[in-house]
């Protein structure tokens, strides 16, 4: 593991009300790679990824203890501006959730709210982001149609383009394909592999095959504990823990 570490999670504990969701999770995520967080439902993988851009702050009765260092800065520190943080660390959600606006406005929104109004500049970013999300050719003639008129897979790629437009360094994918058909899933997976040259990517998935296909590193979580973490090839071929092996062979999950 020679890569630069971009995110360090140290002793992360999280609670929903009295219920503990994450238990002492410690994890280093290298830059410019795809890391998969894998595990059966309820293992805390979604909670963990949502701790990285502090999305859980929106959930009432949610509590987080521990540290998340992004490029050495504690994300839960007092001076951290949560909106700046979320521009650095983008997110794509489980179900495609485009805004009920035009394709163009969906992608432009993140730039506009930074106070940028230069039309040409925004046009350029919209085009660049849609190209990176491999959607430009499909939508370039109907940028001003509603994003809701697109298919599920296209909607999810709009959401990816939207996240790319604010120039993040890290992109979090929270089960991005769980609402999509196999063809759309393949496209998204291909996209994720392309994007890793420029971004650090963290993918939550309960689909072991998907983790094997797209990721360089895999973390296996079970009931809030991080069971095992390492290069994907190693996890899938010689799992160290019995529970990982059982999960991979489909004994539970």
């Amino acid at each position: 593991m020679e890569q630069e570490i971009i995110i360090q999670i140290k002793d992360a504990n999280s609670f929903y009300g009295a219920k503990q969701i994450l238990k002492n999770v410690t994890l280093n995520i290298p830059a410019q790679t795809v890391t998969a967080l894998m595990g059966p439902s309820g293992c805390g993988k979604s909670t963990l990824i949502r701790c990285l851009n502090r999305m859980n702050d929106l959930v009432p009765r949610f509590r987080f203890e521990g540290n998340v260092l992004y490029k050495g800065i504690d994300l839960y520190g007092k001076d951290v501006d949560i909106t700046d943080l979320r521009r650095e660390i983008g997110m794509v959600f489980q179900k495609p959730n485009p805004f009920p606006k035009s394709i163009y406005e969906n992608v432009a929104y993140g730039i506009r709210i930074q106070g940028i109004a230069n039309r040409e500049f925004i046009d350029g970013i919209v085009e660049e982001s849609l190209k990176r999300a491999a959607l430009w050719d499909e939508v370039k003639d109907r940028l001003h149609e509603s994003a809701l008129s697109l298919s599920g897979g296209q909607q999810q790629r709009i959401c990816i383009a939207r996240a790319l437009a604010v120039k993040p360094h890290v992109i979090l994918f929270d089960e991005p394909c769980s609402a999509l058909d196999p063809i759309a899933t393949a496209k998204i997976e291909e996209l994720i592999t392309d994007l890793k040259n420029n971004y650090t990517i963290i993918v939550v998935t309960h689909n072991t095959a998907q983790a094997a296909r797209v990721s360089d590193f895999t973390a296996f979580l079970y009931l809030g504990d991080l069971i095992e973490y390492g290069p994907t090839a190693k996890i899938f071929t010689v799992p160290q823990d019995k529970r990982t092996e059982e999960y991979l062979t489909g004994k539970f999950g």
Binding site: N53, M55, T83, L85, R86, P100, C159
Partner: peptide
């Protein structure tokens, strides 16, 4: 919709 907006730094 709210989550998507917050995630973009709004």
């Amino acid at each position: 919709i709210r989550e998507a907006s917050y995630a973009l730094g709004a």
